[in-house]
Lab assay of single mutants.
Amino acid sequence: GAPPLPPYSAGGREVTMKKGDILTLLNSTNKDWWKVEVNDRQGFVPAAYVKKLDSGTGKELVLALYDYQEK
């Protein structure tokens, strides 16, 4: 199953993602919540729920390892 959710501390809205989604990583300075862009929406997802990909394009991409439903 998915890892436990860290307390929400990102101070911005969250976004929903599905397992297998490829998201653009915008900011990973917060260790628990990373800012991503998905379907032209920006928001935060739990860092433990995604994995960085080596895209080779200069853009940082992450793979959704679990479904996440915004609150």
Results as ranks from 00 to 15, higher is better:
P6R: 01
S28R: 07
P46F: 02
V38I: 15
V15M: 14
L23E: 00
I22A: 03
M17D: 00
K71A: 10
K59P: 15
P7M: 09
T16G: 15
K52Q: 08
F44I: 05
A47N: 02
D32P: 01
E70M: 08
L25E: 00
T29P: 02
V36N: 00
D40T: 11
P3D: 05
Q42L: 07
L5Y: 07
E37P: 00
W34T: 02
K18D: 03
K51L: 15
T16A: 13
G20L: 02
L63W: 05
V36D: 00
L5M: 10
N39R: 10
R41K: 13
W33N: 00
Q42R: 11
N39S: 14
E70D: 10
L25I: 05
W34N: 00
E14T: 15
L61G: 03
A10L: 13
K51F: 09
V38S: 13
E60D: 12
L25S: 01
V36T: 01
V50M: 05
G56F: 09
K59F: 11
S55C: 09
S28Q: 10
N27I: 08
L65S: 03
Y68K: 03
V36L: 03
V36Q: 00
V62K: 00
L53T: 05
A47L: 01
V38W: 09
S28K: 10
D21E: 12
Q69R: 09
L53K: 04
Q42N: 08
Y66S: 03
P46Q: 01
K18S: 09
G12A: 06
D21C: 04
Y8D: 09
R13C: 10
R41V: 14
R41Q: 14
P6M: 02
S28W: 10
K59H: 12
G1C: 10
D21W: 12
G12C: 07
G58D: 12
L65G: 01
E14N: 14
P4N: 09
Y68G: 00
Y8L: 11
P4W: 07
D40K: 12
D32N: 09
S28H: 08
L53R: 02
L26D: 01
D40I: 04
V38C: 07
V36W: 00
R41C: 06
A10S: 14
T57R: 03
G56T: 14
G43F: 07
G20W: 05
V50Q: 00
K31C: 06
R13T: 11
V50L: 09
A10W: 06
T16K: 07
N30A: 06
L61H: 07
D21P: 00
K59D: 11
D40G: 14
W33D: 00
Y66T: 03
S9F: 12
L23W: 04
D21Y: 04
P3R: 05
Q42G: 06
L63Y: 08
N27Q: 13
I22C: 04
K71Q: 15
V62R: 00
Y66V: 04
P7W: 05
G12H: 11
W34F: 06
A48I: 10
D54T: 10
D32M: 08
V38N: 12
K31E: 08
F44Q: 02
S55V: 15
E37I: 09
L5F: 07
G1M: 12
N27F: 05
L63V: 15
P4G: 09
D54I: 11
G58P: 11
V50K: 00
K71T: 15
P3N: 05
V62I: 07
L63Q: 12
G12D: 07
G1F: 09
V36C: 05
G12M: 11
G1P: 14
S9M: 07
W34R: 00
E37L: 09
S28N: 08
T16H: 09
T29Q: 12
W33K: 01
E60F: 11
V62M: 04
P6H: 02
G56I: 14
P4D: 11
N30G: 11
W34H: 02
L63K: 07
K31A: 12
Y66N: 04
L61F: 12
V45F: 00
G11S: 12
V50N: 00
S55R: 09
R41D: 10
L63M: 14
A48P: 05
F44E: 02
P7A: 12
P6Q: 03
D67Y: 04
G58K: 11
D32V: 06
A48V: 10
G20I: 00
M17Q: 01
I22W: 03
E37C: 07
N27L: 08
G1K: 10
G43A: 05
D67V: 02
T57A: 14
Y49F: 15
G12P: 07
E14R: 07
Y49Q: 02
K71P: 12
Y66C: 04
L65C: 05
D32R: 05
Q42A: 12
M17C: 05
E70W: 07
K35G: 05
R13I: 12
K52L: 14
V45H: 01
L63N: 02
M17N: 01
A10P: 14
P4C: 06
L53Q: 06
N39P: 06
L25D: 00
F44K: 02
V45C: 04
L53G: 02
T29R: 08
K59W: 08
Q69A: 15
N39L: 10
R41I: 13
L26H: 05
G20A: 02
D32Y: 14
G43H: 03
G12R: 07
V45Q: 00
L5G: 05
V15D: 00
L23M: 15
A10E: 08
V15H: 05
L5D: 06
N27V: 09
I22T: 05
W33T: 01
L61K: 10
K59C: 08
E14K: 09
Y66L: 04
V45G: 00
Q42V: 14
L65R: 03
T16I: 06
A10Y: 06
R13W: 11
K35V: 11
V45R: 00
A2N: 11
L23T: 00
K51I: 11
T24E: 10
L63E: 13
G12K: 06
G58L: 12
P46W: 02
E60G: 08
G20K: 01
L5A: 07
T16L: 07
G11N: 13
K51V: 13
